[in-house]
Structure formats: structure tokens, C-alpha cells
């Protein structure tokens, strides 16, 4: 048992919670986006934890860089999802004469 394993196990727990949020919990947009963000958090934690296995004092910098890239990408995607959600709520039924055939993601 070493420290990285502790965090590695935690990472899997976080990832699973995120999957539950994205698929299983209440089917609300914000909740799904939260779930997706948490899934990402789990993956990032696993990457950073696995970087700590280095025998030297310095952890492996490559996973750290990957995580930084990943965080920025998930912020971008979150921003777009929230913008669409806001636009949807403002658009309301009034703007589209025909009732929507495809239910919005709830």
C-alpha cells in the first residue's frame, strides 16, 4: 500500500459517482453536467495519482500536463452546455410554433 494507491482508489470512487450523475441520478441538465465534470475529476485524480509512483522525488510531469489540458477542455464543454441550457430556457415553447418532437434532455 502506498499513497498513490489511496488516491487511485478514491479516483475510481469519484469516477463512478460521476457516471451515476451523468446517467442515473435525476435527469436534469445541470446534474448531468455536474456528473460529467465529476467523471473528469476522477480521471484527472487517477492520472495525477499514477504520476506519484515515480521513484524519484519529482512526479512524472506528463500526466500533470495532460490533466491541465483536460481541465481546460472540460471547462470549455461545460460553458457550451450551460450556454445551450440557458438559451433553451429562454427560447421556451413560444418561439417554436410546433411542439418539439424530441424531448430536451432532462
Amino acid at each position: 500500500m502506498s499513497v498513490w494507491m489511496l488516491y487511485g482508489a478514491a479516483a475510481i470512487g469519484v469516477f463512478s459517482a460521476g457516471v451515476f450523475g451523468a446517467f442515473g441520478a435525476t435527469t436534469h441538465v445541470v446534474r448531468r453536467v455536474l456528473g460529467v465534470n465529476i467523471m473528469g475529476g476522477g480521471v484527472f485524480l487517477l492520472l495525477v495519482a499514477s504520476a506519484r509512483r515515480a521513484p524519484s522525488a519529482i512526479p512524472d510531469p506528463v500526466p500533470h500536463a495532460l490533466v491541465l489540458t483536460g481541465i481546460v477542455i472540460s471547462v470549455s464543454a461545460t460553458a457550451l452546455a450551460m450556454a445551450i441550457a440557458r438559451a433553451l430556457s429562454v427560447t421556451r415553447e413560444r418561439d417554436s410554433p410546433a411542439p418539439p418532437r424530441d424531448e430536451p434532455p432532462r
Binding site: 441538465v29 448531468r32 445551450i84 418561439d95 424531448e103 434532455p105
Partner: peptide, 13 residues
């Protein structure tokens, strides 16, 4: 368009 917004959001998620 409203339906496109809904479909786009679903596709994105």
C-alpha cells in the same frame, strides 16, 4: 432553433 438546441445539448452531454 429550439429543437436543434435540445438535440445539440443531448449530443454534447
Amino acid at each position: 432553433d429550439r429543437r436543434a438546441l435540445a438535440a445539440g445539448l443531448r449530443y454534447l452531454l
